[in-house]
Computed example of a mutant assay.
Amino acid sequence: MNEFTIRDIENLCGIKAHTLRAWEQRYRLFTPKRKASQHRIFDDNDLKELLRISFLYHNGYKVSKLAAMTAQEIQHAVTSTIIRDDNYELFVHQMIEASISFDKEALDKIINSIAIRIGMEKAIVNVFYPFLKRIGLLWLNNNVIPAQEHFASHIIRKKIIMATDGLEIPTGEGRVILLFTPKGEMHEIPLLAANYFFRRQNNPTVYMGVDINYDTLCYYLDRKPADYIYTHIITHFDDEKLDDFLCKLSSDYPQKKILVSGPATCCIKKLPSNLTILHTIEDMLNFARETAKTT
């Protein structure tokens, strides 16, 4: 059984900690356990209940009404609510609840339903990324063991690969985009998502994957065509080594355009002329669309 702090609940449910405390004191909406230090702690069942309360609250239910409802009535209200296609917060809540419980069947069904309702691109941008960000916050605070993050990530990874395989093979002589992450960078979902975005716009791609040795990358680039080199970097480099790596890549392949995204881009101090930073997912989507127009 996991334990969550009130800050964890805030991050997961989207309700401020001071609001949660007020609901507890005024409406007795929930009764958290207490540590010896008197700090509130919440378990898996508390989280699931508060996710449902949060959903109803964000869909117009008053707190006083929620406080008067039983857990069964709250559950019924959630399942009876007409869900709009743009109700991304509910989808995130559903994925969190299934992941915390290691409920593979439920998570599979939720992800499939989301992809069918809003499409894979919107699912990645508006549901999968926010979900992984929240789960990541718990992992950083040691409140979710890595197994739970890996459990959810594996299923998302599989769904993105299946969606990409279902796309039509790019036709014509388009500009080829090579995708990789450097040695030591193991986060694959952002790379898979980028590959999906590029392919969906009919851009030819070469997917090399994660944790690629520089010599291996060069071996391919020296023998096969690639107009763009794309990488996503999250945590692997310190500031100076990141600049050194990108400057070397740009210098070794001056005729190719280097594209970089990920949290580590905020640390880039040197910007070679053939290097472009994609600061946001929208930047990446715009690049995919514009590149498709020029092929």
Rank of each mutant, 00 (worst) to 15 (best):
F4C: 04
T5C: 11
R7P: 00
N11I: 05
N11Y: 08
G14K: 10
L20K: 05
A22S: 15
A22K: 11
E24H: 15
Q25F: 09
R26F: 14
L29T: 04
L29C: 08
T31L: 13
P32R: 09
K33F: 06
A36L: 12
Q38I: 06
D43L: 02
D44E: 13
L47W: 03
E49K: 14
L56H: 10
H58G: 14
G60P: 06
Y61A: 10
K65L: 08
M69E: 00
M69W: 01
T70F: 00
T70G: 11
I74N: 01
A77Y: 00
R84G: 14
D85W: 01
D86M: 12
Y88H: 15
E89Q: 13
L90H: 12
L90R: 14
F91H: 13
H93Q: 15
Q94F: 08
M95N: 04
A98T: 01
A98P: 06
A98D: 05
K109G: 06
I110L: 01
N112C: 12
S113G: 15
A123I: 00
N126L: 02
V127E: 02
F128K: 09
R134E: 05
L138D: 02
W139V: 02
N142G: 07
V144T: 09
V144D: 03
V144N: 09
P146C: 02
H150K: 14
H150G: 08
H150T: 10
A152S: 13
I156A: 05
I156H: 05
I161W: 00
M162R: 11
A163R: 11
D165Q: 11
G166S: 12
V176H: 12
I177L: 12
E185C: 04
M186L: 15
I189E: 08
L192Y: 04
Y196A: 00
F197H: 07
N203D: 01
N203V: 09
P204Y: 05
P204E: 03
V206Q: 08
M208A: 13
G209Y: 04
D211R: 04
N213K: 11
Y214H: 07
Y219R: 13
Y220M: 13
L221E: 07
L221H: 06
R223P: 06
P225E: 09
D227Y: 01
Y228T: 07
I234V: 14
I234F: 04
T235E: 07
T235Y: 13
F237R: 01
L242T: 03
L242G: 05
F245E: 01
L246M: 10
L246A: 06
C247T: 10
C247R: 08
K248E: 15
L249I: 12
S250E: 01
S251R: 10
D252R: 11
Y253Q: 00
I258F: 01
L259W: 10
S261I: 01
P263Y: 14
A264Q: 13
K269C: 00
S273V: 09
T280G: 04
D283T: 12
L285W: 01
A288P: 03
R289K: 15
T295R: 09
